[in-house]
Amino acid sequence: MQMAAASGLLSLGMFVVGIALLAVLGGSFWLGTRVKSREPARPRPDEQPHLPPGGAVHEIRENREPDEVPQTPEGGRPLTPYELTNMQTRTSADKKRRRWSPGSSGSFGGGGLGSH
C-alpha cells in the first residue's frame, strides 16, 4: 500500500524529465537554425537552368552491338585478358528490338508466359 501511494518525488521527477525534454527540443531547433543560416542562399529564378536554344532534347533509342572479339590463328596461343582492349559498341543496323521470347520482355515478372 505504501508503494502504490502517490508521492511528491515521483511528480517532481516527471516534471524534471519534461523540462529536460523541452530543453533538448529547443536546443535542437536553435542548432538547426544556426546550421541553416550558414548554408548558401537558394538560387534566384534567373539563376535556374533554362532550355537550350533548340528546344527540349529528346532521348534517342537505338540498338547497340559489340565489336567482334579478335580470332586467334589456328595453332596460335590464345589471347589473355590483358591483351584485349575495352570492347567498344556501335550502332546496330537492325532497328528491331530483340526479345528473349515472343510476347515477353525477358525480365522476371514481365507478363509473358516465359520460355516454354
Results as ranks from 00 to 15, higher is better:
R64P: 00
V69A: 07
E47K: 06
M87G: 06
S107H: 13
G109C: 04
G8C: 10
W100P: 00
M3N: 05
P52A: 07
Q48C: 05
G109H: 06
L22Y: 14
M87T: 14
Q48K: 12
G110Y: 00
S115K: 12
Q48P: 00
H58E: 15
S115M: 09
D46L: 13
Q88L: 04
Q88C: 05
S28R: 12
Q2V: 13
N63E: 01
N86F: 12
E68T: 14
E65G: 05
S101P: 00
L25T: 07
Q88F: 07
Q71E: 06
G26H: 01
P45Y: 00
M1H: 15
G26M: 10
D94W: 06
G27L: 06
G8S: 09
G114W: 03
V17S: 12
A4S: 13
G75S: 05
E74P: 04
E74A: 13
V16P: 01
P70I: 03
P52L: 03
R44L: 12
K96N: 10
S92A: 13
E47T: 03
Q71L: 06
E65K: 14
R64A: 12
V16A: 15
E59G: 13
S105P: 00
P66E: 08
L84A: 10
R34L: 11
A5Q: 12
K95E: 05
H58T: 14
L84K: 08
F15A: 15
F108L: 11
L12D: 14
Y82K: 15
E83H: 11
F29Q: 11
H116D: 07
T89V: 11
E74L: 05
T85L: 14
R97V: 06
L113K: 06
G8Y: 05
A5I: 10
R42G: 04
T89N: 12
G18I: 00
L113T: 11
N63P: 00
R64W: 10
E83I: 13
S101I: 05
E83R: 07
G110D: 15
A5T: 08
R97F: 06
T89Y: 07
P81E: 08
H116L: 11
E62Q: 13
A6N: 12
L22K: 02
D46F: 04
